Simulated assay, not measured.
Amino acid sequence: MSVPVSTEHEVRDIEKGAPPARFARGWHCLGLADSFKDGSPHEIDAFGTKLVVFQAQDSGELHVLNAYCPHMGGNLARGTIKGDTVSCPFHGWLWNGDGRCADIPYARRVPPRARTRSWTTLEENKQLFVWYDPEGAPPPEGVTIPRIEGVFDGQWSDWTWHTLRVEGSHCREIVDNVVDMAHFFYVHNSFPTYFKNVFEGHVATQYQATAPRGDMTADQTVSAQGDTRSVASYYGPSYMIVYLDMDVDEAGTTVETAMINCHYPVGPDSFVLMYGAIVKKLPGMTDAEAAEAAAQASQGLAAGFEQDIEIWRNKTRIDNPLLCDQDGPVYQLRRWYEQFYVDTADVEPAMTDRFEFEIDTERAVRVWQAEVDANLARQTAAER
């Protein structure tokens, strides 16, 4: 009996492609602003180079410059802050926040061309951002980071904040999660009951509702103990704000959380991932209790990202994913994401026009509930 031999037309080959040679245009968060306000310059590996972040002593402003001094290549991040300048540790050249050399202690005059790159910065939500554009253009009108009012009104906790570097993966891997409903069940042990995406302009949003899985212990799941409703939006290529409401008891008590998921590229296949949370204080909740609630939210984020990173470390890049009818709009999201990697003149309406897609979760919920029920039955039988 002969066995049919598959032809090349019956097998879908994975197209890996190569990560983009350029970095995404947009605002990129470098971390909590206060972490750079300790009187020392700070070194950041980003965009294929090194940056120095420093706070001017007199004005109090945060500045970002290219880290390597254009005189003889000294690393300004290893220098000192003097007034509103950063001093190179190699020859003492002083650099202003605008990139101009302010003084050379041993020279009679400063060369007219003594300038280095000064990066456009923004402080918002108590975080520091830099603007990156390979064409050198300033931020367009209306493209900014929205304010989270809870950061400033005194009714919320302070930020928790975590930073880790991911090697061997491009930033696209984390952005793909915006449309990937199924991975929340299989990777994060969550239980999505509603899932919708809306892309428009430079914003990509995920609307999601989840229910707790009864077959998981607390250390196996990153989902909440009660039902949750979340709205998660990328504002540009790398900064996501997540607003999440979590039901915590049968009396209808809801905890409001704002979470940040953000990153900046180090190289074509590495990036720094950061995340944090603030929690709105419930009536009678102390500052310490609010901080603990925010810490718990961050622990959930940490567990989730650890699960994602384990997947990224062992998967391949795939430019032509084979999708089924209940997968999210992966190709449409990547088309939206592409706008940040092409020249502004090449941004097409298809990348920015409004697009909506809602997944019918009825079948998924039915199948997943049956799996959860079967797991619970096995657990009960094992305990007898």
Rank of each mutant, 00 (worst) to 15 (best):
Gly60Tyr: 08
Val272Asp: 00
Thr205Ile: 14
Phe357Glu: 08
Glu15Trp: 11
Asp319Val: 11
Glu43Gln: 11
Asn96His: 15
Met216Val: 09
Val151Met: 06
Glu173Gly: 06
Thr116Trp: 07
Tyr68Ile: 02
Val178Glu: 04
Val242Trp: 07
Arg378His: 05
Val143Thr: 07
Gly83Gln: 12
Ser87Trp: 06
Gly214Thr: 06
Trp131Met: 08
Trp312Lys: 08
Met181Phe: 13
Glu8Gln: 06
Gly201Asp: 03
Asn177Arg: 12
Ser6Leu: 15
His188Gln: 13
Tyr207Ile: 03
Gly79Ser: 13
Lys196Asp: 10
Gly276Val: 04
Gly92Thr: 10
Ala291Asp: 14
Arg172Gly: 02
Arg334Thr: 02
Tyr132Lys: 03
Ala182Gln: 13
Met240Leu: 15
Tyr239Met: 04
Ile145Gly: 02
Ile148Met: 02
Arg78Asp: 15
Ile148Arg: 00
Cys324Gln: 10
Ser223Val: 03
Gln208Met: 12
Glu167Lys: 06
Lys16Met: 10
Phe271Gly: 01
Pro265Ala: 07
Asp38His: 07
Gln57Tyr: 02
Cys171Phe: 02
Thr120Asp: 08
Glu123Ser: 15
Leu76Met: 15
Gln296Cys: 04
Trp312Asp: 10
Val11Ser: 03
Thr163Arg: 14
Ser169Pro: 01
Tyr341Ile: 01
Gly284Met: 05
Ala67Cys: 11
Asp58Lys: 12
